[in-house]
Design a protein around this nucleic acid. Structure first.
Lengths: 124, 124
DNA sequence: TAAATTGTATATATCTTATATACACATTAT
DNA sequence: ATAATGTGTATATAAGATATATACAATTTA
């Protein structure tokens, strides 16, 4: 499992893990029923504590992405992608609203924002 | 001084204060040389500790927005608005990049993002 | 059924946020 | 001049979030 964590980013490690796994589930790299690495093996691989991987998995379980069974392991659940899309849209709207606030504050026009958006969306 | 703080937002109080004062400086409500409310009076008004207002003012001082003098008070400095604009542009680009990552993850097209951007920029 | 592997729970350490209190400097009223 | 008040500053402390070590419980496997 390719997970990369940064200690300097300021984002909690358990969040980095759960969001990367979320991404893998949503883009199809992980499918319904697939087994996740055990909390211990992932912790060992990332050189962090089991408690931290557990917290990441708890977050994924709370959000309906996986299920864990004592003694067996953790597995990807069936996804409601449409519901997730709606949730993401709400988040994106909020983020764009923050961008607009920042922009207006120093006189950045809508056109300029549109340009930046197109550039960062297009490339990568 | 009209400053509104929220205890439930999750954003640190000192950040809420400093960012609102930054806004006032940048949109012209506060001008070079203007005196800020004393740390004590602002703390009293917001029913928070002096240490918290001090931390907000320290942040503003570190970012070059104000200067504080023991016994006298805190005052707005001359602004380099062009430099600030450049910094904000970098931040905005980063935020838009995050938006695009989120969008691609659940199949949201550039057109849809553009629409949302226009809506949240236009109204308010 | 014993050993190994899995998830879980408890107690602890460190950092960030927010605070109370006491201190140092400048202005103002006497 | 100087005492009183108002200003910013420094130290010690409390509460919450993040990450950990260690021991416990359930399942699988040899």
């Amino acid at each position: 499992m390719d997970i990369i964590i940064s200690n300097s980013s300021g984002e909690p490690i358990y969040n980095q893990i759960s969001s990367q796994i979320k991404t893998m589930i949503l883009d199809g790299r992980l499918k319904e029923g697939d087994a996740l690495p055990s909390m211990r093996s992932l912790a060992q691989q990332l050189r962090i504590s089991v408690i931290t991987t557990k917290r990441a998995y708890e977050e994924l379980e709370r959000d309906g992405f996986i299920e864990s069974y004592t003694g067996k392991g953790s597995f990807v659940k069936a996804q409601n992608t449409e519901l997730f899309r709606e949730e993401q849209l709400r988040l994106i709207e909020e983020m764009l609203s923050n961008v607009c606030d920042k922009a207006k504050l120093c006189g950045i026009e809508l056109d300029e924002l549109r340009e930046i958006l197109e550039i960062v969306y297009g490339g990568q």
